[in-house]
Design a protein around this nucleic acid. Structure first.
Length: 684
RNA sequence: GGGGCGGUAGCUCAAUCGGUUAGAGCAGCAAACUCAUAAUUUGUUGGUUGGGGGUUCGAGUCCCUCCCGCCCUACCA
């Protein structure tokens, strides 16, 4: 018997700004499977989470809806819990960072950090939105890049692939607040900082001591730890939705200070309900703390958070388990494509067990992105779960419905023992978060069991009155194999475990892993009921269509109300007035793309040969590589500046420009013309 | 600019320290079976492991170089 472990598990706190979607679910399903596995093994394990409720984005969203922040986050709290429950994600406590427990813990930890001499104050200059009355985080400012002069760039870096420079938001030319559209002004404010450099030695050692995947340790080393750590700006001036810092009135803890403390606050709530002592979980060497997070928040959990814990004398995580992002059909989830599927939309159309299994079958221990391929999703779930696993029960249960399982376990040629022996490997795979491997191993058991049934052919035995005992034995073997497999799968498919427990009259719950080692005999078998529906492609398509429709309804820019955002215009205001003569100097012509080829050495250029009709051709280098594939351009009619002075570029002579709109990068939209236009026509 | 990760069959992924002929599943093809949700079983077609060079008795794996993709770069969460 393995020693009992005491394990505390968290998933990242979902931001209370929006609904749970299938991308989030990768993490919660991954964590829930791990927790259920630990409980199945008989370990003491609690799973904690909470809504992350603070920060500027919440303020803006609440304001948009015309409610208070508290009302706003209460709404999401309900929704989130409902969605998680719908996917059988079972938290031991689901709290909120906007709780009394969290406020108090933040204060206690803050005092420890203060006492350790890690806090210092600095005045910093930051852009302020006078209309919205708030300081602006980088992402809420856009303007023209100070280096390459490209308009409408982010507050802290230029997206122009040729430039890519980083800068401070106040260096932007013509900055605009994306909250109000106002021109921000530079103001000075006092901020509090944590001097992380004091903990550099500790972090160096800790990151290399085993809590992290290798690539994460490498990344931290190559990216942060190779040079002095910068001070971490931990406060935000009012107005800010969060906790005011007790010893620094008017300043609030930055959301990334109070968010991870939310893990502890959630534990506190659980402890209070169960008469436990918080220190037994967060200041005890007996407890393993495991954080499951996405790769986007790596450094918060692997630098800042351990630094906080260390300074406050709290336990450090034993593992930070980092996973990649979800892509759908090989691309980022997209509202426009309907692949940004909310949990609720999924549940309206499909079985949560299907997604739990599919994710399990794709999740490895590393932080690679995982791809949801819809066709594969349908095929895999149907083939593995319905065709192989559930099939074992549905092809044998009804033969023994009246007699139950044999009193003694019959000779099965070693099938059950082989399955039991696989248990250790499966257990290791779960422990290491290599669910893909676990699923492969489990499916091998199912394959062997199906072959056994095939060879034993119970459908022939039942016809022969003298072979009824043999029939019962064969089905006893098949159903025991099925049960063994379901025990292995129960962290992934708790519903299937419950149904199997009912079928075979024997529960599968916490501590029951070892039931996979002993066959069940002499119990009645209930009437077989369908355990899982096949996934139908039409339901998947319906889900995608609904997601598309939701996106269109909520996306003002895409709606038929022409409720277009003013962002583009603000980012690039109208130019000075010009005369018709000025305009006529520019000779715009319709042109046909004859050839289009990528310029291999160029990051953003496509080389185009444009025809103006007859023999007149122009070569143009267009910066649209990130947005278009050459083959998609050939044959199209475009609008070009035909009398532009030719320009010698690194890759050849460019004899004009193709007209396009958009901020750049992948967001470039080449102008087309309506049906009927022909190359060479002038645009007036 | 700096940094991290990756590229293996049509698709999704394996391959322990560098060690037999690079393996599975799905899809495809051929057959068997009819208990089961068009399920299952058997057989089978798919590969210059992104390109090039090197080290080695031996390279998907190590080194160099080039190409391609994804991600990160601390006052967004």
């Amino acid at each position: 018997m393995t020693t009992l472990r005491k394990i505390l598990v968290t998933s990242a706190l979902p931001y209370a700004n929006g609904p749970i979607h299938i991308g989030h679910l990768v993490e919660y399903i991954q964590t829930d499977i791990w927790v259920r596995f630990q409980k199945l093994r008989g370990h003491r394990c609690i799973y904690l989470c909470a809504d992350d409720t603070h920060g500027t984005a919440i303020m803006i969203s609440a304001k948009k809806q015309g409610v208070t922040e508290e009302e706003f986050i209460a709404g999401t709290h309900e929704e989130h819990q409902r969605d998680f429950a719908g996917f059988d994600i079972e938290f031991d406590n689901y709290g909120s960072t906007n709780s009394d427990e969290n406020r108090q813990l933040c204060g206690e930890i803050w005092q420890k950090i203060r006492a350790a001499g890690l806090v210092k104050e600095k005045d910093i200059e930051q852009l302020y939105d006078p209309e919205a009355g708030t300081f602006l985080a980088d992402r809420f400012v856009r303007g023209t890049c100070p280096y390459c002069k490209k308009p409408d760039q982010n507050g802290d870096h230029c997206e122009n692939p040729k430039c890519l420079k980083t800068f401070e938001p106040n260096e932007l030319i013509d900055p605009v607040s994306t909250i109000s559209g106002a021109t921000p002004e530079l103001r000075t404010a006092k901020h509090l900082f944590i001097e992380l450099e004091q903990l550099h030695g500790f972090l160096n050692e800790w990151t290399k001591s085993g809590p992290l995947q290798d690539e994460v340790a490498n990344y931290l080393n190559g990216h942060f730890l190779h040079e002095p750590l910068r001070d971490w700006d931990i406060s935000r001036p009012a107005p800010y939705f969060g906790f005011e810092i007790p010893d620094s009135p008017g300043n609030y803890w930055y959301v990334w200070f109070d968010a991870p403390i939310g893990y502890i606050a959630s534990t506190k709530q659980w402890c209070d309900r169960h008469g436990e002592n918080l220190d037994d979980w967060w200041r005890s060497d007996d407890v393993e703390i495991h954080h499951f997070i996405g790769k986007d928040i790596t450094y918060f959990h692997t630098l800042f958070w351990p630094a906080m814990l260390k300074s406050a004398g709290l336990s450090l995580p034993k593992k930070v388990r980092i996973h990649g992002f979800l892509t759908v059909g090989g691309k980022k989830m997209s509202k426009r494509d309907g692949t940004f599927v909310k949990a609720e939309t999924y549940l309206n159309n499909l079985d949560p067990s299907a997604l739990r299994y599919y994710y399990a079958a794709k999740l490895g221990p590393r932080l690679d992105d995982i791809d949801l391929n819809l066709q594969e999703f349908v095929d895999k779930v149907n083939s593995d779960l319905v065709g192989k696993v559930v099939n074992l029960a549905s092809r044998s249960a009804k033969f023994v419905q009246s007699v139950g399982l044999s009193e003694t376990y019959p000779d099965d040629g070693g099938l059950f023992v082989q399955g039991a022996e696989a248990g250790d490997l499966i257990s290791d795979a779960y422990e290491n978060c290599d669910y893909a491997r676990a699923m492969r191993l489990i499916l091998e058991c199912a394959d062997r069991a199906n072959t056994f049934v095939e060879d034993a052919a119970p459908w022939n035995l039942r016809k022969d009155e003298s072979k009824q005992q043999q029939l019962q034995d064969v089905c006893t073997v098949a159903l025991n194999s099925f049960r063994q497999i379901v025990i292995y799968l129960s962290p992934v498919l708790p519903r299937l475990a419950d149904q199997t427990a009912e079928l075979l009259n024997d529960p599968i719950g916490p501590g029951d892993w070892d039931k996979s080692k002993t066959p069940l005999t002499g119990t009645p078998v209930a009437k077989f009921k369908h355990m899982m529906k096949r996934v139908e492609m039409k339901d998947v398509e319906k889900m995608i269509d609904e997601s598309k429709a939701e996106a269109e309804a909520s996306e003002p820019t895409a709606s038929s109300q022409y409720n277009d955002s003013d962002e583009a215009l603000k980012a690039e205001p109208l130019a000075d007035e010009c005369t018709i003569d000025d305009f006529m100097k520019v000779d715009l012509r319709v042109a046909r793309v004859l050839t289009a080829e990528e310029v291999p050495e160029a990051r953003k250029l496509i080389k185009l040969t444009l025809s103006l009709g007859g023999d007149v051709q122009k070569t143009v280098f267009a910066g649209i590589k990130a947005a278009y594939k050459p083959e998609d351009l050939v044959g199209r009619l475009v609008v070009m500046v035909a009398n532009l002075k030719p320009r010698q570029m690194k890759f050849g002579l460019s004899e004009g420009m193709v007209c396009a709109s958009g901020p750049g990068g992948a967001d470039v939209f080449v102008l087309g013309v309506d049906e009927g236009a022909v190359p060479g026509q002038r645009v007036h």
